[in-house]
Amino acid sequence: MEGSIHYFVDQTINGLTLGAIYGLIAIGYTLVYGIIGMINFAHGEIFMIGSFLAFFVFLGLGLSGITWVPLAILCALVVTMMLTPVYGWTLERVAYRPLRGSPRLAALITAIGMSIFLQNYVQLLQGARPRPLQPVISGGIELMRTVTPDGSPYVVGLSYLQLLIIVLTVALMTVFTLVITRTPLGRAQRACEQDRDMAALIGVNVDRTISLTFVMGAALASVAGLIFVMNYGVIDFFIGFLAGIKAFTAAVLGGIGSLPGAMLGGLLIGLIEAFWSGYFTVEYKDVAAFSILVLVLIFRPTGLLGKPDIEKV
């Protein structure tokens, strides 16, 4: 069974879904790294908070009897994309802005502190137990059908949920690329990325641009959280940690600071993880992701699409 093309297609679809989540989170890492050169370690927690908010919306709507799926998803999308970015904004304002200009490690330590804080904030308020959610969307399109050696049918399908995830991700990434390449905000961001002092001199509001970068990253992470809730149906306060590290790996793999790189890296990490669990062992899938991180950092620190980082003295 494992050798068949059907199994392969199945794993590919799983990998793409997973990759969409990692890619959306990775953009937040890459943007922040590009603009202020720090690893926003707490970004995974923003994703976790987004998934919790989406969970509340789905649960609340379900309990109050509203079951029309498009409305539920739209509500969840609007609520999470409005509330989660406030966390991103506050994070930058409280923990990172006062440290601008200090060594990288100081900023990384605050980021870790913030990550621990947010995790425990959610744990204290919502409890440590995993929270299950009923599937929001069911059904799907049948792609292939075959019979396993023992006679039972094996169907490879693309569920409507997976279709929605892929469409949503592609749409968001398109909008996002347009924002970065075509709007004044995107231009300001690119200017800050190249030279913050110079950008300030020619009238770019650097603080505001950096804040908006965090807001944008958090909005995308919150959508990833929404997708996570719908796709896996179980969340707890700790999901942000692993997802965050893997998304960071994705950003590094694609070349940190590069937008297309983050998307590519996300997809690759998703696919690698899916194939690893499909063909080797599920237990060691996290080790696979970490090994990729280490290998990439040792042999190609600039990633697949990144620019070389020149250290100035």
Partner: peptide
């Protein structure tokens, strides 16, 4: 292999190693 890396990358990699040993 990793000590050549810059400070913040090193931090993340050591975190990865810590988790790997636990797994």
């Amino acid at each position: 292999p990793v000590l050549r890396l810059r400070g913040d990358y090193l931090a993340i990699v050591t975190l990865g190693f810590g988790e790997m040993i636990r797994v």
